[in-house]
Design a protein around this nucleic acid. Structure first.
Lengths: 84, 84
DNA sequence: TAGATATTTAGAAAAACATCTAAATATTAT
DNA sequence: ATAATATTTAGATGTTTTTCTAAATATCTA
């Protein structure tokens, strides 16, 4: 669970998740929204992936990232129980 | 809002919040639950205080910490909207 | 008022983190 | 096969975070 809280503690990563709510995106497409290098973005995506918040799927030349809805809901529940 | 996410990203601080759910506690009392120095704990409490998650109130010799319930609920709402 | 207890502040050291450049890997198109 | 595009990995650097020791401040009790 720590990895989830850690993943959410960074503003860039929270924005990435917000972007992915709207639609799945390739790394290049996500990168257009941030003033950081691909390498740096890739690192953020890795952290989100390891926290199980997103899923990466290659489609040909691109790798598309999407929200891991099921875990997202799981996380929501844990947050709720945390605040209760 | 960033201060709240940051505050919650540390395991010790989340445990402190969990302790305070049960009852208000002085710093010395809280400290019994963690293998860290008073100074270090004081720093964690400061971060929680700045995130508005806890309130500090002096009662004579002691300073008692308690959950800031109203903000806690506010935070819960924001978290929910974040996941929606 | 002096000594004891409770807590915070200051400043330093170590660990974790975000970012970068350069190089590596994977896929597509010519 | 080669060149072009997409993404990740490796390694370095600067910043932030966590923690510590020592000193400062506040309150209580004798």
């Amino acid at each position: 669970m720590d990895s989830v809280f850690k993943a959410l503690s960074d503003g860039t990563r929270r924005e990435i998740l917000n972007l992915l709510k709207k639609k799945d995106m390739s790394v290049t497409e996500i990168n257009k929204h941030f003033p950081i290098t691909m390498a740096s973005l890739s690192h953020h995506l890795d952290i989100l992936k390891k926290a199980n918040l997103v899923i990466a799927e290659r489609q040909g030349q691109y790798i598309f990232y999407s929200l891991n809805i099921s875990v997202f809901e799981e996380v929501m529940k844990i947050f709720l129980s945390f605040f209760k």
